[in-house]
Design a protein around this nucleic acid. Structure first.
Length: 99
DNA sequence: AGGGTGACCCGCT
DNA sequence: CAGCGGGCCACCC
């Protein structure tokens, strides 16, 4: 399957804008982002935007699932966990222990 | 215009 | 408590 650039779309822009707001050591869920951009039911597409783009100007590693499990990551789940750990976020068995 | 994909979510079994 | 199924959305061919 091919990856496409969604970074040019208005939707993705909104998503990135919100994700950039997340401060170091903090996390947000896909659903929260969707809600923040005014589309509570677009959590699916939110994950898409992050996956397709994976910009480094956006801390996509701070975005996790609603149940606080790590979720996916383009560069590998391990990397995601590493980064989160580096920011002081504790992860237990693939799940976020504390915000 | 229709079908297929994906870093998801929720409820029911 | 874990697993399955159905339902959302945006985007590409």
């Amino acid at each position: 399957m091919r990856r496409y650039n969604l970074s040019n779309t208005d939707f993705a822009e909104k998503v990135y804008r919100e994700v950039r707001r997340i401060k170091k050591g903090q996390i947000a869920t896909y659903k929260e982002i969707a809600l923040a951009i005014g589309k509570p039911m677009s959590f699916r597409a939110v994950g898409n935007a992050l996956n397709k783009n994976a910009s480094k100007t956006v801390p996509c590693h701070r975005v996790v699932k609603s149940d606080l499990s790590v979720g996916g990551f383009n560069r590998g789940t391990k990397e995601k966990i590493k980064r989160l750990s580096s920011e002081g976020i504790r992860i237990k068995n693939g799940k976020i222990v504390s915000r």
